[in-house]
């Protein structure tokens, strides 16, 4: 036991503490924008797809292409690729602030596809029933589509949040801050294995926590 403790005695906990907080800030902010943007794109993808209320082959094709392009670029390359854009958007391309735009741009298309898939699971008959009752398209999206797809949307949100954890860690390679940054600078570049292990443990706890919350919410709202 004492050997284990002495292995970690050189760790600067204040640095770990700061990095953890940075990771949580990056997660929270990028998750917020990802959900809003991804939900909008996902709904539009669904509605413009074949046989749906706003069927439009051209719009669907364009949206789908953009989503596919963004999803086919590995995050670490995307981050570097859009640095000029990031600088225009938030004034810097490094640090916690500079990490948020690439995180959102990478995660929103991913989440949009999960939203599209979740909406596809909604029984078409229920949409037709709402139409027959005289609901407008907007009301059908809000009161029927999103409501009926809620467990799928929650599951998709959980998957996206977990993906964002690993993305935030990756953003450390370009000075993004947070636990990933710490692991690379101390754990990798200075061979401080103790720091490396602590950051990995913290990331595992974070992912585990997110998944448990997500699963609990899905269970709570499931009516099947």
């Amino acid at each position: 036991m004492n050997e284990v403790l002495s292995f970690f005695e050189n760790i600067r906990w204040d640095a770990i503490n700061k990095a953890t907080r940075e990771t949580l800030v990056m997660m929270g902010a990028s998750m917020f924008f990802t959900v809003i943007l991804g939900l909008a794109i996902g709904i539009l993808l669904f509605l413009t797809s074949r046989g749906q209320m706003l069927q439009n082959r051209f719009v669907y094709w364009i949206l789908s292409l953009v989503v596919n392009i963004l999803r086919s670029v590995p995050f670490i390359i995307l981050m570097i690729l859009i640095m000029p854009l990031t600088k225009i958007m938030v004034g810097t391309s490094i640090g916690v602030k500079g990490a948020i735009p690439p995180l959102v741009i990478a995660a929103a298309p991913f989440f949009a596809r999960l939203v599209e898939a979740a909406l596809r699971e909604v029984d078409k008959g229920v949409l037709e029933a709402a139409q027959a009752m005289g609901f407008s398209k907007g009301m059908i999206v809000w009161h029927v589509l999103l409501r009926e797809a809620r467990t799928g949307l929650l599951a998709g949100t959980t998957i996206t949040a977990v993906t964002l954890v690993s993305y935030t860690a990756m953003s450390g390679t370009i000075g993004g801050g947070g636990l990933g940054d710490l692991a690379i600078r101390f754990g990798f570049q200075r061979f401080q294995w103790d720091v490396m292990i602590i950051t990995v443990i913290l990331l595992i706890i974070l992912v585990q926590g997110l998944q448990m919350i997500g699963d609990a919410l899905v269970r709570k709202y499931s009516r099947k």
Partner: peptide
């Protein structure tokens, strides 16, 4: 359409709503 009711072979109820909320659903408008 609000004055033309419709029922379906597969019922097409909201699975996330209670019986009460399903019946009250068209009254949202």
């Amino acid at each position: 359409r609000q004055k033309i009711g419709m029922i379906f072979q597969h019922f097409n109820l909201l699975s996330t709503a209670t019986v009460r909320d399903n019946i009250a659903f068209p009254l949202k408008m």
